[in-house]
Design a binder for these strands. Sequence first.
DNA 1: GCCGTTTTCGGCCCGACTGTTTTCAGTCG
Length: 571
Amino acid sequence: MPVHNAEIAAMFGQAAELLEIKGDNPFRTRAYRRAARTIEGLPKSVAVLLKAGEDLSELPGIGKDLAGKIATIVKTGKFDLLETLKRQLPGELGEIASLPGLGPKRVKLLYDKLAIRSVEDLRRAVKGGRLRELRGFGAKSEAKLLAALAKPPTEKRFKLAVAEAEADALVNLLRQDLGKGQIIVAGSYRRRRDTVGDLDILVAARDGAGVGDQLTKYENVVNVLAHGPTRTTVTLRSGIQVDLRVVPDESYGAALMYFTGSKEHNIALRGIANEYGWKLNEYGLFDGERRIAGATEEEIYKKLKLAPIPPELREDRGEIALAKKKWLPKLVSLSDIRGDLHVHSDWSDGTVPIAGMAAAAKQRGYAYMALTDHSQRVTIAHGLDAARLAKQIGEIDRLNDKLDGFVILKGIEVDILADGRLDLPDRILSRLDVVVAAVHYKFDLSRTAQTERIIRAMDNRHLSILAHPTGRLIGEREPYDVDMDRVLAAAHERGCYVEINAEPDRLDLTDIHAQAAKSMGVKVAISTDAHSIAALDYMRFGVDQARRGWLEPADILNTRPLSALKKLLKR
DNA sequence: GCCGTTTTCGGCCCGACTGTTTTCAGTCG
């Protein structure tokens, strides 16, 4: 059983946590965290890399020592350091440290003085009034912890589309009193991550305190966590946390950069500033006392001799090295998209007739749209059998005759059956322009079986695009267990493509898998899977995800004009 | 533990806010 990247990353993360509580060298702790992130963000599994003879110490943040430890973990599944640490500090210390107001130092204090090893131990100690005996703990700490222990942990991250709705409402409200001031939502929202942990709102205005006050009075605020002259933190009814930061105009770019993150990207930039003998913080880039840049992000990147880095790339996954050489990818944007290759109509479970979807797609500036209703197995969605599909083909021919400057491609979202066969016979699939294929049941197959099922489906030369390749529903359903390395390799061999499903609940391929597809030479379709006209506008979320995966227009199927697309769809 | 157009040793991002202090450590982002 090979060890997955996520498992190795988790081991390093746990080790970092325990080292921190132990009070070990903080930079050593950081090295483990950084290595964990690097491994988590790799487009290929380290097991595969090692087998190919790659030198892991070439990876950022991984040196000789950690490369050796990784090799050992892959080989034996064991990580000695972590085992030792767990023996030295038994219990659920990581969980305790995740409570608000408790960090490594105080967890260590609790452990040493009160022998607190679990959340339950902590609960008893707080209720018994024993925390107050400790230096640094007082009535407020006690109350805060009691409150945190009383309620179940709230959901940690929100879907991007949900966060967007909250952000729009809030920004509109705060903008009213801002006059000429600027306001923008930064953080992972601006980096367009598929989920957002909190909303980081940045304001450049004279009267900063006023905006903060305004926020604390917002009707959806249920809790004010902090409120100072330049920084305010609140929780909204929905559970999402909002951090508001106010800066002067001359610091806007620096603050935007700082607040956009990622944290790791910022740390790397500050390191570069140090190399020049400068200091970078949220107020600007400083040479001693003198501010040498800060009003815009561009001027700061320029001073640091870096090409400006789009927010979607700021994850410290190699973008800084490329920015140094001015080799950053030219990311795909919404305006590059010429059509939608996964759209439903009321023939299956869509809500709109074919003509209506086509008109709406055309209105969005597209040149084509593939109609891909469900196939017969999905009875609940009124999936099409061969006879109805044949009828639909005729209908599309008639519609196309009437359309000018727009083409409806004939397609299907055909089910991949449990054994890897497709849900409709070849004789009808051969009459289509696009065959999108997807798994809709039997999610619980073993990794090997699921992977082979999908690869077998791709053996069918009619299959064009593998839709929502991991089947995840963010926050609701885990992705099914599939070896994406093998799937992408198989897609490359067979000349088929994979989808980024732009539906905000799905957004798979993930950014990392999208990057893997690119690295393996597999082109990607960005498709909405729209079941209604409004859902056609989800395209932008798919483009966001593609940008996070470093994809350029040439990596995307549906940036092509129709003639070029048709050539690519032939196998 | 990593890393190098100052360096193979000696650095490693930086500031706001809180709570408990009486000058600051710890947490957080």
